[in-house]
């Protein structure tokens, strides 16, 4: 037997599984090969160490409840999808134009403007600074939005997008019209990478209503957990108001990700509104995650204790 064969067998099988005939060959090999003998000895040590670990047993009585929880979370996801699709998703095929109209109307509401006017197919590839976002759309939707270049020092950026024609926009993050394009990208672009980059750019902007509304929409509707989480962090920079408080409470009671639920709770810990404590306790009433239950308990049910010791 060669070293390699011996090594393969030792790595692949528990010793008891090895047929007697092969065991003899292995033993003969081990008696004359120091390296393989060392591997074998180490394997034995590990094998005994592993056997010493307490057996992980599961309580099978919990499985029906677990099953119900799984199916509930999936039905919640279906509901989320259905609301998201009716607002932002642009399916291919026959319904595309209807969906574009619905999506455009929804984005118009999000941005605080209705988008109207006859369509134009002209190309826009010059600075957006003084242009108007509504003019830019002209009753069309932007697709395949990409944030091509960003200068983080100056805030200058270049965005490309497809309309009926190709479009390139240049401008500055401080420009409200550019902010509207980013808000549009966040709530409507199909590419999660674009949505994530949009959120990252929004993190430094805390004065734009369009961005705040887009962030809220993203936190509540984006299917990508990374995007939702980043949007939540960006939103945390805004002073808490009723809209934001409701958004965070919504996350605490509905978001499938425990990490997001914890972040939302932590944001609300800064909220001094007297009603927040009860609202958080109500929102986390059905919380199953022990860590979260513990955080809520420590902060809200035993007031005076902070997470940061």
């Amino acid at each position: 037997m060669k070293c390699r064969q011996c090594e393969d067998i030792l790595l692949n099988y528990d010793y008891e599984e090895i047929p007697e005939k092969i065991k003899k060959e292995i033993e003969a090999h081990l008696s004359r090969c120091i390296r393989c003998a060392e591997i074998w000895e180490n394997q034995q040590i590990l094998s005994k160490a592993i056997k010493s670990l307490p057996e992980v047993s599961i309580d099978e009585d919990h499985i029906p409840t677990l099953h119900a929880n799984i199916m509930n979370s999936i039905h919640r996801e279906m509901f989320r999808e259905s609301t998201q699709h009716s607002r932002f998703h642009v399916p291919a095929g026959t319904f595309r134009y209807v969906a574009v109209a619905v999506a455009t109307l929804a984005i118009g509401i999000v941005l605080g403007n209705f988008i109207g006017g006859p369509g134009s197919t002209g190309s826009v590839d010059t600075p957006l600074a003084s242009a108007n976002f509504n003019e830019l759309l002209k009753n069309q939707s932007l697709t395949d939005i990409r944030i091509e270049q960003v200068d983080h020092t100056t805030g200058e950026l270049v965005i490309s997008a497809a309309r009926k024609d190709n479009l390139t926009l240049t401008g500055n993050i401080s420009d409200p019209e550019i902010q509207k394009v980013l808000a549009y990208a966040l709530v409507s672009d199909q590419n999660p990478g674009t949505r994530l980059r949009s959120v990252k750019l929004m993190e430094g902007v805390t004065t734009s209503d369009a961005i705040q509304q887009a962030l809220i929409s993203s936190v509540l509707n984006d299917e990508n957990q990374g995007v939702r989480q980043r949007a939540l962090r960006a939103l945390a920079q805004y002073p808490i108001n009723d809209d934001l408080r409701n958004t965070y409470l919504n996350v605490i009671s509905n978001d499938p990700s425990p990490a997001l639920r914890i972040e939302a709770i932590q944001i609300l810990m800064q909220d001094e509104d007297p009603g927040t404590r009860t609202a958080v306790l109500n929102a986390s009433e059905e919380e199953k995650n022990e860590t979260i239950q513990d955080i809520v308990k420590r902060f809200y049910q035993e007031p005076g204790q902070s997470l940061e010791k």
Binding site: I70, S73, N289
Partner: peptide
């Protein structure tokens, strides 16, 4: 679900975490 729960339990080393993981897996 049972196989996923057992696999998750071997990594998380406790049932509650394993159940959370199982729920996230199926989602």
């Amino acid at each position: 679900e049972k196989r996923v729960l057992i696999t998750a339990a071997q990594i998380c080393r406790n049932q509650q975490d394993a159940e959370d993981v199982t729920q996230d897996v199926f989602l």
